[in-house]
């Protein structure tokens, strides 16, 4: 299952749809599982009337978690050594998310082959919602 350095080259990509018509219920589900009950994400009344947003929006960490599904599906279980994300745009109920990883480097560290990836997640309008990086162990 694991990726092989010998079969990867700079510029290779892997893409997956990681959310389809994101539901408010999934946002609530994430609040419960993560323990982050910030009402901005689950409480429409609070989000509109107190915080001044058009409505609730997803936790950035829900988008990062969903993007991580694409990463682990590609690099394999337990293979990530680093994963980072900047939240560049909010994700709203109804959004579709496409996550893509692009190989930017193949390096060896302490005898271990690693692949370096750029990670970008976009919504249905092609707008970037996550911009990140990841590093994973690969086989020779």
């Amino acid at each position: 299952m694991a990726l092989k350095a010998s079969e990867l080259k700079i510029g290779d990509t892997h893409q997956e749809q990681v959310a389809q018509n994101l539901s408010r219920t999934q946002i609530v589900q994430y609040a419960g599982a993560s323990g982050d009950y910030m009402p901005l994400h689950t409480d429409e009344v609070y989000a509109k009337e107190i915080a001044g947003y058009p409505g609730v929006f997803a936790h950035g960490m829900l988008s990062m978690g969903a993007t991580g599904v694409m990463l682990t599906n590609w690099v394999g279980d337990g293979r990530l050594t680093k994963y980072s994300a900047r939240f560049t745009r909010q994700v709203w109920p109804g959004d579709d998310l496409i996550a893509q990883a692009t190989v930017t480097g193949l390096v060896e560290e302490d005898g271990q082959q690693l692949v370096e990836l750029d990670v970008v997640t976009t919504n249905q309008d092609g707008q970037e919602v996550i911009n990140g990086k990841a590093t994973a162990r690969v086989d020779p």
Partner: peptide
């Protein structure tokens, strides 16, 4: 390959469930 259940990459976020002073609960 890991030989058993492991946690997904962003799982440690759930640690706030156990943080006695977490403000967003």
């Amino acid at each position: 390959e890991p030989g058993g259940t492991i946690a997904p990459p962003t799982f440690v976020q759930a640690g706030c469930q156990y943080d006695p002073s977490f403000p967003l609960r």
